[in-house]
Simulated assay, not measured.
Amino acid sequence: MFQKHPILKHLLLMVAVSVVVLTVVFLGIKLYARQGHEFELPDMVGADIEDMRADASLDINYVIIDSIYDEHDAGGRILSQDPKAGTRVKKGRKVYVSITAYSADKTFLPDLCDLSVRQAVSQLFSMGLQGGTLRFVESPDRNAVLSLSQNGRTLQAGQEVSRGSRIDMVVGLGDEGGYTVVPFVIGKNAKEARRDVLTASMNVGREIYDAGASRANAVVYRQEPGYTGITRYPLGTEVHLYYRDASEQEAERMIREFKIDSSDIVQPEEPSAEPMDDSYDLEW
């Protein structure tokens, strides 16, 4: 066909070349425009929100979606960002961040007396409070919260307290005392680990962060005593927690690779190591 109509052949060839050239030019212009309007988001976690806003090289619209008070941290520090670091975004893009609060909000202390430790801890954490120290005393009301205090000052239900503050509890030991199983907290952040330790009627002991570890990203990589699922400890025993920075994937890997180290396990003298489930049920 093209041999009989060479002009048609040349016309079609010219059209094809024109389409290819225009496509390349269009893509080049689009890529150039994108490079001029897009950039890679830096890692903002740990930075001060006001410092980031003052950075003229970043054209970002920051939207604060949550603020969390931490008595150990200064206000305004970025705890999380969305989109994540490394994402390419256009200038003027909204970036959603959570930060540490500059001051603590207030809340009213619920009535926790006569509740079990598990119920009391659950209520405290759901209201943005934290469980402090559990002190067990002789009382026929075993595992029941008898009184609340903060910094040595007795608290009453309905009293105003700061969110994020720690509430100490006096708990009944029962007539014969009791024992519990240390929970497994490897791979959990500080809030989750503290909650699980207290729920098991144990106390949080030393909390040690590796050099350079941030409280926002750190998870537990070591606990003392170690978890066995069967070894029982007296109520109120301290569990020491060691933290280091880890991504979500690294935390999951730590959990998968965790192996019980018998050298870390301290056997209590009185109770026998009979199999128990992992529900933190107490034995009296």
Results as ranks from 00 to 15, higher is better:
2 F>H: 10
10 H>G: 02
11 L>A: 05
14 M>L: 14
15 V>D: 00
16 A>L: 15
17 V>S: 05
18 S>F: 14
24 V>C: 13
26 F>V: 10
28 G>R: 13
30 K>N: 09
32 Y>A: 11
33 A>Y: 02
35 Q>W: 02
36 G>V: 00
36 G>M: 12
37 H>D: 05
37 H>R: 08
38 E>R: 02
41 L>C: 06
45 V>N: 09
51 D>S: 03
54 A>I: 02
55 D>R: 12
57 S>C: 00
65 I>G: 10
66 D>K: 14
67 S>Y: 01
67 S>C: 01
69 Y>D: 07
69 Y>K: 07
70 D>Q: 10
72 H>E: 15
74 A>D: 07
77 R>Y: 11
81 Q>A: 04
83 P>M: 02
83 P>V: 04
84 K>C: 00
85 A>M: 06
86 G>P: 06
87 T>K: 14
87 T>W: 04
88 R>K: 14
94 K>H: 09
96 Y>Q: 09
98 S>K: 05
98 S>N: 01
100 T>N: 07
102 Y>T: 07
104 A>G: 12
106 K>V: 13
108 F>M: 14
109 L>I: 12
109 L>S: 05
112 L>R: 00
114 D>T: 14
119 Q>L: 06
123 Q>K: 13
124 L>G: 03
124 L>K: 06
125 F>M: 03
126 S>D: 04
127 M>K: 07
130 Q>W: 03
133 T>E: 14
134 L>D: 08
135 R>I: 14
136 F>W: 11
138 E>T: 09
139 S>W: 10
143 N>G: 04
145 V>H: 04
149 S>L: 12
153 R>A: 15
153 R>I: 15
154 T>Y: 07
160 E>W: 00
162 S>H: 03
163 R>W: 00
164 G>E: 05
165 S>N: 07
167 I>P: 03
173 L>W: 09
174 G>H: 07
181 V>I: 15
182 V>Y: 06
184 F>S: 01
185 V>A: 07
188 K>A: 09
189 N>H: 07
190 A>D: 12
192 E>S: 05
193 A>H: 03
193 A>C: 08
194 R>Q: 11
195 R>P: 04
195 R>Q: 13
195 R>V: 00
196 D>I: 01
204 V>G: 03
207 E>S: 14
207 E>Y: 08
213 A>F: 05
213 A>W: 06
215 R>V: 11
216 A>C: 02
216 A>V: 09
216 A>S: 08
218 A>G: 05
220 V>H: 08
221 Y>N: 11
221 Y>H: 14
225 P>K: 08
231 T>N: 09
231 T>M: 11
232 R>H: 06
240 H>T: 01
241 L>C: 09
242 Y>S: 08
244 R>F: 04
244 R>M: 09
252 E>K: 15
252 E>V: 04
254 M>N: 11
255 I>S: 08
255 I>E: 15
256 R>H: 08
257 E>P: 02
258 F>H: 15
263 S>D: 15
273 A>E: 15
274 E>Q: 10
274 E>P: 01
274 E>K: 14
276 M>N: 04
283 E>Q: 14
284 W>C: 01
284 W>K: 09
